[in-house]
């Protein structure tokens, strides 16, 4: 579900980034003081690293021959509480993005919303907490894990669809794309839920104190208000980017030049240059786009060759 940069427009990425940054800022304020008092800082760090390591261990999915791994949003929320889990999961997403190219840097805000917020701030307080209660009975934890994971991942899938459609990247109709994404993520959500339940049941057996309910605070109403505000921001302010009208930068060019494209010249100099170009061009019969592409490729090869010959080694070590 990690959204790559190529699938979002700068407007949608920026909008999601603003909402995610606001949530992280609220989160940081909420956790201020609590982290030092309860030893949450090292716990969050170690559990973030744990989720990262656990994602590398795949379990086999019966009857399919394939394997899957845990995402960890609901599990982190069950262990740390929703706000601490959001920061931890967001940190894991940053590590995955920067070190393993899993999810884009610009799309980080989208990924924090899709995978972090949907699981920890929505599915956990609204689904897991009411169903699991005080985590005293195993069947309740199993039901809560499965339901919360399905809800979290389905919400994330809906968000991915909305963000991609708003960005105007895919030609697939919204309904078909939504059906495809939610269908696939229903299965993934069930797998995630079962895996989360299995781990939480193990924890209940060997370290029941880790699932103590007093850790799991988090107001669902304030979260929903933030989330709805973000959704309106994304949907309302940035929808124009996906429209047929010029995008932000084209609009700016349009304002400056009076049109969305810079018109070709018709003066004597331009005509003379065009004639020279026609004579000197390596590929005169190809249309301009082809010539542009081939020209770019030649430039890239030249740049690569020249930079390979230059040594940028410095004597001073970095600070």
């Amino acid at each position: 579900m990690h959204l790559a940069d190529a699938l979002v427009s700068p407007g949608v990425a920026g909008g999601a980034g603003v909402v995610s940054a606001a949530l992280i800022a609220v989160d940081a304020r909420k956790l201020k003081g609590v982290t030092e008092r309860e030893g949450l800082v090292p716990m969050m760090g170690v559990l973030g690293a744990f989720v990262f390591a656990a994602q590398m261990i795949n379990f086999s999915i019966p009857g399919t021959g394939s394997s899957g791994h845990i995402v960890g949003g609901v599990m982190l929320a069950a262990l740390l509480g929703p706000w601490a889990a959001l920061i931890t999961l967001a940190s894991v997403l940053v590590v995955q993005c920067l070190l393993f190219a899993d999810g884009g840097l610009m799309a980080l805000g989208c990924n924090i919303l899709n995978m972090g917020v949907c699981s920890t701030l929505i599915a956990y307080p609204l689904v897991f907490k009411p169903l699991a209660g005080d985590c005293g009975r195993m069947w309740r934890v199993v039901a809560a894990s499965v339901c919360a994971s399905v809800v979290g991942l389905e919400l994330g899938a809906v968000m991915v669809t909305v963000e991609t459609e708003l960005s105007g990247v895919t030609a697939l109709p919204f309904g078909s794309f939504l059906g495809l994404m939610t269908g696939i993520h229903l299965l993934i959500g069930l797998g995630e839920g079962i895996a989360t339940a299995a781990v939480l049941c193990f924890v209940m057996k060997f370290r029941p104190g880790l699932l103590s309910p007093e850790k799991r605070q988090g107001g669902s109403t304030s979260v929903l208000a933030w989330f709805l505000g973000g959704a309106i921001l994304l949907g309302g302010c940035f929808a124009w980017i996906a429209s047929e009208d010029p995008d932000g930068l084209e609009w700016s060019v349009g304002r400056l030049t009076g049109g969305t494209e810079i018109a070709g010249g018709t003066g004597d100099v331009e005509v003379a240059l065009a004639a020279v170009q026609q004579k000197t061009s390596l590929l005169p019969d190809y249309d301009s786009t082809w010539s542009g592409i081939i020209g770019c490729a030649i430039v890239l090869v030249l740049v690569w060759a020249v930079t390979s010959l230059i040594s940028f080694r410095r004597k001073n070590k970095p600070v």
Partner: peptide, 20 residues
Amino acid sequence: RHYDLSMWATFVGQLLVRSV
């Protein structure tokens, strides 16, 4: 190569308890 779910849960649960 892969773990079945119960073994995976024990493995990851054990890693979690050690991590905590």
